[in-house]
Amino acid sequence: MFANLTLESYKTMQFALMISETHEGFEDRNNARAGEYWGGWMAYSRAIAESGIFAGGAGLELPSTATRVVFDGASKTVQDGPFPDARELLGGFFVIEVDSLDDAIAWAKRCPITKGGTVEVRPVLPPPPQAD
């Protein structure tokens, strides 16, 4: 097992940047500051694309459009809305391919979040081994 670890650590890694914003942040999508808000995210996405590290991602519609399916035992209940009472909610995510956590953190820090929020940085699982 550690043979793999050793050799793979010389390769690039994929990281998901999961971007959560506050309610105030989401409001900026549709108020007087909308131009600035969208301009910021457009520029950020462009920078990721131009750096050649883009490996996936999407911006998400407002949390009010969310529907959740709750699994509890055998029942699967459909409910309105995102996770209740959360101070911050998922607004979008990117998957980037870089050398290390430090590079991923550097990209996370460049997110144009102005009203508070969190970017969770997590390594993406490697693809399952291909059958020959």
């Binding site: 670890l5 650590s9 890694m13 990281f15 050398d99 290390s100 956590l101 430090d102 991923a104 997590r122 390594p123």
Partner: peptide
């Protein structure tokens, strides 16, 4: 090892 913390 898993989170990609670099050795540098």
């Amino acid at each position: 090892a898993q989170a990609g913390i670099p050795f540098r």
